[in-house]
Design a protein around this nucleic acid. Structure first.
Lengths: 112, 112
DNA sequence: TGTTATACATAAGAAAATTATGCATATATT
DNA sequence: AATATATGCATAATTTTCTTATGTATAACA
């Protein structure tokens, strides 16, 4: 990929956004969904994902619910009320960031 | 700002892009230019900027030229030949990243 | 004369990732 | 039957990249 490092700092927002769309997801599902959405460009590693999920849970933005499917463990995460608010806020910040970066790397197309 | 952390990983690209536009700039000038371009949203700290410039120089992407203006030191940086190539490459990666993030946070507007 | 602006630099620490490793079950392949 | 790949979780060690704090020095302004 090469540009993986650009995604640094955006993982939390990505997780929250996916959970805003789907209501409840488990870790592995998130990695697959992101791979699909980005056509393979972004591959979330487990070493990044699980600590991020745990942190969001610890901050009270996610609730977790354990399930057993096909004799295998799954941890379903969903937004808390607070998580929903925080998602809106983080998405707004992300959009601002994207606009700003656009205006830097492609000034001509950002006269708005 | 709040969303400063989203810029993590994009500093090199920003520096290179500015130098592609202006030919030669010094550190302090870069911080001011970025502040102006982003309407104060992004404030590059010295602790991030100077190490980044030194690294780009060490990698052979930038040449440095020292000048004395008003009895104060300035270090002007400019792109090397290799730096120009790398800039194009990094800008392409950045644009890909921005497109991808757009498509994640705002799927409706990214059907292109 | 003290504060703000200009101009460089580095060190300590924090945040967020990568890489490596581990455990366990299910499914597909040879 | 054995092996590899996929599913599913987790953590530890390390690296990268930043923030925060600190240092030096000159110029301009109040």
């Amino acid at each position: 990929m090469g540009n993986q490092k650009l995604y640094k700092g955006s993982l939390q927002t990505i997780i929250l956004k996916l959970l805003e769309e789907k209501d409840k997801m488990y870790g592995y599902e998130i990695t697959q969904k992101v791979k699909e959405l980005t056509k393979g460009e972004l591959n979330i590693t487990e070493g990044a994902l699980y600590p991020a999920l745990h942190k969001l849970e610890a901050e009270g933005l996610l609730d977790v619910e354990v399930a057993k499917v096909d004799n295998r463990l799954r941890k379903y995460y969903k937004l808390t009320e607070n998580g929903t608010k925080e998602t809106a806020s983080k998405l707004a910040e992300m959009e601002e960031f994207l606009r700003t970066m656009q205006s830097i790397v492609n000034p001509k197309f950002s006269l708005e």
